[in-house]
Nucleic acid binder design. Structure first.
Length: 766
DNA sequence: AGCACGCCGACT
DNA sequence: GTCGGCGTGCTC
């Protein structure tokens, strides 16, 4: 609805009757680290307009500088404890209708408390930038005909051109722009100006999508639903659906963990569940890791549901805005997207699905550092709807929640078509010679065999570049070349003849001698995908191979092109980083090789074993999806490590049985909660001093059950010339940590250029 | 986070 | 004598 003079047209006569005794008050929060709700008087002209969930402009501070805030509530009377003489008035309403509904207001308030930020900051993170700046829309002047003129149209005596223009405008069901009317009435703007001056036409200012200004609007949300037969559910899928039915059909909160091995048909279960809630006129949100948001995935949803909204990071502001509005208007029933799609403004949400629930990309690494899975569970709880978490290798937090009965675990242990899980063979690198670099003799032989059999091969190596480090050969120096701005070893990229920092992307030419001691003949070591590619090309000159990592996939669409070429069989050997391992299934892949399974194992992170297990287990599921059996070869220096051993036997529960006691012994998640306080700044002593003071503040507020570690430099102690220290808080349950943070929050102002970040439930400890 | 107020060093 | 350094405290 449009606003006229800040009022709804329907309420045009309301103010004469209004009693303006005290007037309503609006509770406003700001996108600033101020954890308070400010009260502003709502002036009479805005009384019928201001509603919770809108952005408003209000004067703030001594200079009454206009600031944008979010209205979170309307009070009939002045809230107690504020001086009425100091209350200011709301200036302006920015959104009509409101951007945020009641459920999302509640959700963001919870986020603020849980993730230790202000309500305003949480709200600001939920609304996309394109929506805030109304990208893709513009304000235009539109012409309408007043009713009395319309009625007396015949009796008016007007010059021909004006009469013609007026008639055209009367026949249009929509208000027209001046330009449109000129075109339709085949006249210049003169007659129209005359009509306006005579008061025969009115002008209204409206904000509309840009494409509405030139008549033809394109179908925004793709709709290529070519019906494909819906496969009948397997016995196991049927059983899982049956278990979820009461929740899907009643309005109740329930969290289901669909623990299904790769190839067990989890997606089909998601689709069936979505159909159930759609049939009741409800909407569903599907969250997938950004990397899985491929055309292939999207097509699958689109074929089944027709009109869906896809939210991914490459949308323009205008596209995102359009999708958001379309969702809020109830025009789309299925929303598929990455992390931030958890905030999609669905009106009657009926279901949330999170695929690959364990993926760390669901954690946002900027304030507010929320975990989309945990926010989604909270949202489901607030909206009283079911939520489905799907994974072959659930996060241990999720597993534990299932064990404790908070989530319902629904196992799916059979692969569709009764295909066996591929056999995984471990190659102990401590007993192997690696003549060329990355490929052991058994892996090379297996590749020869697979290719000879007309199968395809995937090789996974989680490191970009040619050499992963450069070191000075002089034993007295022996320094690894590091980035100038970061505490990180530089990687040599042979193709570009550059040393590159993978943390800040800084590049520099390779030096001819050690920058520290001038020794010549620097030693290059470690294997990255670039070097593996070279090795494969040399060993298999007759088979087309392709490298896929973020270096080769720079142009948009290249990802899809390579995958299409691999699918068609044109490419025989696909090698690359994580990005080849995610959610893709290629029936003709008969061999998967993990070049180095240990890359994550020795990280200084309590989740190192879990990450290693997940990586190997996921990759192992990528083969044997067609009719032919698959083989998986995993190269490792630690074949006896339980993470690798269990992954090779597809034994999730075995891994859990080894890992959980370790976690319990150290009180790590899922047996305790962590909060990480990260201080960073350009001056190391200043950061260190601040963090030490912060520790004292925390100790002074001491809470039973909260233990503190540090402060200590973070494992990567410097990034982009900012020194980093962290302090870790641990507790059995989240509550004491929340209380502690809230208690000390007012008294921790970092000095000068130091910044403090609070990471609740950290996933990344670097 | 901004932004104003406030109390101490090197300049016309 | 002043311009300005950024420490401290507030924002309905």
């Amino acid at each position: 609805m449009s606003l006229v003079n800040g009022k709804r047209q329907a309420d045009w006569f309301a103010d004469e009757a209004g009693t303006d005794a005290d007037g309503p008050y609006a509770g406003i929060v700001f996108n600033r680290p101020i954890d308070q709700i400010f009260s502003y008087r709502v002036p009479a002209r805005l009384e019928e307009v201001v509603r919770p969930g809108q952005r408003v402009r209000v004067p703030l501070g001594r200079g009454n500088k206009p600031a944008v805030g979010y209205c979170v509530r309307i009070d009939a009377e002045a809230p107690s404890g504020i001086d009425p003489s100091r209350v200011k008035e709301v200036l302006d309403v920015l959104d009509d209708p409101p951007l945020i509904n009641a459920a999302m207001l509640e959700l963001t308030r919870w986020m603020a408390g849980y993730y230790a930020c202000s309500w305003g900051q949480a709200l600001d993170a939920v609304v996309p930038a394109g929506v805030k700046n109304q990208a893709g829309t513009r304000v235009g002047t539109f012409l309408t005909v007043p009713d009395e003129i319309r009625k007396s149209l015949e009796t008016l005596e007007l010059p021909t051109k004006q009469a013609e223009a007026l008639a055209v405008l009367c026949r249009s069901d929509e208000p027209l722009t001046i330009a449109d009317l000129c075109r339709l009435a085949k006249c210049a703007s003169g007659p129209i100006t005359a009509l306006r001056q005579r008061g025969y036409v009115n002008t209204v200012r409206r904000r509309l999508p840009k494409d509405a200004f030139n008549a033809s609007s394109s179908a925004a949300l793709g709709d290529d639903s070519d019906a494909k037969p819906i496969p009948a559910l397997t016995v196991e899928q049927t059983a899982v659906m049956a278990a979820m039915t009461p929740a899907l059909e009643g309005d109740e909160f329930a969290t289901f963990l669909i623990h299904g091995v790769t190839g067990s048909g989890k997606t089909e279960v998601y689709l069936s569940a979505i159909e159930r809630v759609m049939a009741r006129g409800r909407e569903a949100i599907v969250l997938v890791p950004e990397i899985s948001l491929t055309p292939q995935t999207i097509r699958r949803f689109r074929r089944r549901f027709g009109k869906i909204a896809v939210l991914h990071s490459h949308l323009s502001d205008a596209e995102r805005h359009r999708h958001w509005r379309s969702i809020a208007a109830g025009e789309v029933q299925v929303i598929v997207g990455a992390r931030s799609a958890v905030f999609a403004p669905a009106r009657r949400l009926g279901l949330i699905v999170i695929d690959e629930e364990h993926e760390s990309t669901f954690k946002q690494e900027t304030t507010p550092r929320y975990h989309a899975r945990d926010v989604a569970v909270k949202r489901a709880q607030l909206e009283r709807i079911p939520i489905l978490l799907g994974s072959a290798t659930p996060a241990l937090e999720t597993w534990r929640n299932a064990e404790l009965g908070r989530y319902v675990r629904l196992p799916m242990m059979e692969r569709v078509g009764a295909r066996p899980m591929p056999k995984v063979e471990l190659i102990d690198l401590s007993h192997e010679r690696l003549p060329l670099g990355g490929l052991s003799e058994p892996l090379r032989q297996a590749m020869i065999a697979a290719l000879k059999d007309d199968g395809q091969v995937m090789l996974l190596l989680n490191r970009r570049g040619f050499h992963t480090f450069v070191i000075c050969p002089n034993p007295r120096c022996n320094q690894v070349l590091k980035c100038h701005a970061c505490d990180v070893a530089l990687t040599y990229h042979k193709g570009r003849r550059l040393l590159i920092c993978h943390t800040c992307d800084a590049e520099r030419p390779r030096p001819s001698a050690c920058p520290n001691c001038q020794a010549p003949n620097l030693h290059y070591g470690g294997i990255g995908t670039e070097r593996l590619e070279r090795e494969v090309e040399m060993a298999f000159p007759d088979s087309v191979s392709r490298r896929m990592d973020s270096d080769t996939m720079r142009t948009p669409g290249s990802h899809e092109q390579v995958l299409a070429a691999f699918r068609s069989g044109e490419i025989k050997i696909l090698l690359g980083t994580q990005m080849i391992a995610k959610g893709l299934d290629f029936p003709n892949v008969t061999l998967v090789g993990v070049v180095n399974a240990d890359t994550a194992l020795h990280m200084p992170d309590f989740r190192a074993a879990e990450r290693t297990f997940q990586l190997v287990a996921q990759v192992a599921g990528r083969t044997g999806r067609g009719d032919r059996p698959g083989r998986v070869l995993v190269q490792t220096f630690a074949p006896d490590h339980y993470a690798i051993d269990c992954a090779s036997r597809h034994d999730y529960e075995g891994f859990v049985a080894c890992e959980l006691p370790e976690r319990q012994r150290f009180g790590m998640p899922p047996f305790g909660r962590l909060v990480r306080l990260i201080g960073r700044g350009p001056d190391e002593p200043q950061v260190r001093t601040f963090m030490n003071e912060l520790l004292e503040t925390l100790k002074a507020a001491a809470l039973p059950g909260v233990t503190m570690h540090g402060p200590a430099p973070t494992p990567i102690s410097k990034i982009r010339n900012l020194y980093r220290y962290h302090l870790r808080l641990r507790s059995e349950s989240p509550r004491p940590l929340q209380t502690l943070l809230q208690a000390v929050a007012p008294s921790i102002a970092p000095p000068g250029e130091v910044e403090l970040a609070i990471d609740v439930d950290p996933v990344n400890l670097l």
